[in-house]
Write a protein that binds this DNA or RNA. Sequence first.
RNA 1: GGCCUGUUGGUGAAGCGGUUAACACAUAACCCUCUCAAGGUUACAUUCAUGGGUUCAAAUCCCAUACAGGUCACCA
Length: 547
Amino acid sequence: MTNKEFADILLPNIDKTIEDYDKIYPKRNLEDGAIVTRYAPSPTGYVHMGALFSAFISSKMAKQTNGVFFLRIEDTDKKREVENGVSGIIRDLKNYGIKIDEGMISESEWIGEYGPYIQSKRKEIYQTFAKHLLINDLAYPCFCNEEDLENIRKEQESIKDRIGYYGKWAKDRYLSKEEVIKKIENGEKYVIRLKSPGKFENKIIYDDLVKGKLELPENDLDIIIIKGDGLPTYHFAHLVDDYLMRTTHIIRGDEWLSSVPIHLQLFQVFGFKPPKYAHIAPLLKEENGNRRKLSKRKDPEAAISYYHEKGIPTEAVLLYLCTVANSNFEMWYLQNKDKSIDDFKLEFKKISSSGSLFDVEKLLNISKNYISLLKADEVYNKTLEYAKNYDNELYELLTKYKDYSINVMNIEREQKKPRKDLAMFSDYKKENWYMYDELFINLEYNFDKINDLGEIKKIISFYISKYYDANDDKETWFNKIKLLSEELGYAKEVKEYKEHPDNYKGHVGDVSMVLRVCLTTKTMTPDLYEIMKLLGKERIEKRFEMI
RNA sequence: GGCCUGUUGGUGAAGCGGUUAACACAUAACCCUCUCAAGGUUACAUUCAUGGGUUCAAAUCCCAUACAGGUCACCA
């Protein structure tokens, strides 16, 4: 019996060849240096921070070289599937402004010429490639079940041999064609394994784009390429898909590093040129002195929805991720405030080979700077978007008082060093609620140095009757507060008071603090003059009367 | 256990045989200031996991040790 006849019995419905697919998916016509990358998640319904990190790097690399970035769904494990999982991933990428050139655009549709971009629809392709191996005596069916494998492992452990299905331990490798056919006729289940040509004693040298030059043992494991359900394992799907989709660079987590010998061998066995690999270290989290991978299950900040719920701009997250990827980005961005990430050139070589702690503090700082550079109407739109999803009360106020809100957001914004008090859009209400009469209820005033009610009343009544004028400019306004202070026995300059504290009851600062607290209840607010201007005469008088 | 990777301050890091070991976040103090947010100034690693070696000279090169992480699935 020839290998071909044998392969036909195992995979009877496969009549295409790999050459046929080569024609369907020709080499890409791209300029020199163009990088083709992908993001290839399982359809679990969400993207977590670590995945976003690698998706960001992948898309950025493709974009800056005029290459291609595509989204491929790896759904060969039915147990992990989640309903509408693909849509969740597409939504998350879109929210973060990571655009795909090719790949899935909904649960079942895709764009691009190298599809299908979902593995469950590529079964025949994988089997065609497996059949090629069978015909060339580089693969064989294996009938071992879980129990058989367990027994082999136990025996290997007892004699302290290396664990795995390889060499003499790979007993089904030595089955004759006749034995195989008999087993199949008996209805025994099987998988297809690679007949590995490698030797563990041999070393392979390969150059990782981020880890550098590495020496690894050659693969001698007869890994499974087609599972019992006819679908490929990750390794085999990687070979087939990334070959046919003409991926040039595989950017993935470094948990894959030790699989590189398998992948390289797969490419070698087919005579294909392997892609370049960039293995990036995971984002870490510190937990009682130890570091572990940031986990979606244990760490709320690992979920992308966490940032959405707090109103942390996606741009800030990307900015943070970019500084983690290439630490020189931070300095560059500081010197090029008017530019964007798109203008920065990310380099593989500058990606750290060891994992870094995910620092939410730093992210918030970046976010704060980012928001401070926005125009008031941009802040308004983004805050509105946030409120629409998470804060109905705020949403209604923002809608009702649109122009007024934009003015509030504009306080101390149009200046050389804009105010930096918002790290997330959910901070807006926390910082500025008192600007809305609807929220100016159930008040608790936090008076500071001057907290005698009689004195407070005296200050505001003098102020409103003798000094306040809604038309004053800032300088006049402040001069009047100084005059008021003087009249009531307070120093009109803080310095003056510090020099002769016994001559005064206090200073201008204390007096304006009274006004501030009466109008806002808070001791810490943005510029009082701006606040008063926006409040207007009527509301100021009303708030004073409330005291 | 085998194989592989990593280790510079609280954090992210620059550094590539001769530097006062950049810079940013965080922290603290002071200054500025009507309060905050900022901004400014300063402080924060005599030392680069540890121990050896090479060298006139080592965070940088070599070796060993320790610690941490990854991987060894019909999961990706």
